[in-house]
Amino acid sequence: MKKFFRDYLILALVSGTIIALDQWTKSIIRQNLALGESWMPLEWLAPYARIVHWYNRGVAFGLFQNGGEWFAILAIVIALGIIYYYPRVPAEDWTLRAAMGLQLGGAVGNLIDRLTVGHVTDFISVGTFPVFNIADSSITIGVLVLILGVWLQERREKRTRGQQSTAEDHPGEQVNFSKANE
C-alpha cells in the first residue's frame, strides 16, 4: 500500500497543482472579464501579450472547433491511461513521469471546463498566436519534456553502446572510460 501512494504522490502533486492553478485562473477570468474583453495592466506589453476572455470547443490553441464531446472522451481516456501507466514507469525516468504529470493536469483542467461550462475558457494571448490557458500550456510543456526525455534516453543508449563496443573491440584489456583517469 505504501508503494501505491509513493508511486502516485508526485503524479498527484504535479497534476493537482496544475489543475488547481488552471481552474483558479479561469474562474478569475470568467468572473471579471466579459467574453471578448481584454485587460492589460502594463500598456507597453499590450502589442505583445494581453489577458483576454475567450473560449473554444476544440483542443489546445483553438484547434478542431466544435469537437468538444469527442475531446472530453479523449481526455478521459488519456487521463485513465496515464493513471494506469504511471506506476510502471521507472522512478529514474523523471522526464516521462514529469511529462505524464503535466499532461494529466492539462487534460483534466480542460476536461473540467468541458463538463461544467460546456467549453474551455482561454485567456492568455501572445502576439498573433491563438489564445490559450494554463492547461494548454501544461500539455504543451509536457510534450516538450517527453521529447527531451526521449532525446536524453537515446543519448544514454548510444553512449552505453559505444562503451560496450569499445570493450568488445579490445578483449582482455581493461578499458577506462573516465576522463579523470586518462
Rank of each mutant, 00 (worst) to 15 (best):
V143R: 15
F177I: 10
L74Y: 09
F129V: 12
H53I: 09
F71T: 06
N181P: 03
W44D: 09
W44I: 12
H53F: 11
A49L: 06
T116A: 03
D7R: 10
R88S: 13
A99R: 01
L144R: 07
V89M: 03
Y84P: 05
I124D: 02
P90C: 06
M1K: 11
G36W: 05
K158Y: 13
V131L: 10
V59S: 10
R97E: 04
T160G: 14
L102Q: 00
L104W: 02
L144F: 15
V77I: 14
A99F: 06
I82R: 01
G58F: 06
A107Q: 08
S138Y: 07
S15K: 05
F132G: 11
I124L: 02
L74G: 13
I73S: 15
A20N: 09
A20K: 10
G81A: 10
I112N: 03
Y55P: 02
K179S: 14
I18R: 00
F71K: 02
I141T: 07
G106Q: 01
I141G: 02
N181C: 13
V120C: 01
F71N: 03
L13S: 10
P41I: 01
L152D: 08
S15F: 01
V14P: 03
L45K: 07
I139N: 06
L115V: 05
N56I: 06
E37W: 07
V150T: 15
D169Y: 13
S27M: 12
Q103S: 09
F129T: 05
L74S: 08
N32Q: 14
V108G: 01
G142Q: 10
S125D: 12
I18Q: 00
F61Y: 07
L11C: 06
I76C: 07
G118V: 01
A75S: 13
T17L: 04
L63S: 14
Y84C: 04
A180G: 09
M100H: 00
V108R: 00
L102F: 03
T160P: 15
F71I: 08
I18Y: 01
T116K: 04
W24R: 08
V14I: 14
Q153K: 14
I82L: 06
T140C: 15
Y55R: 14
S15D: 02
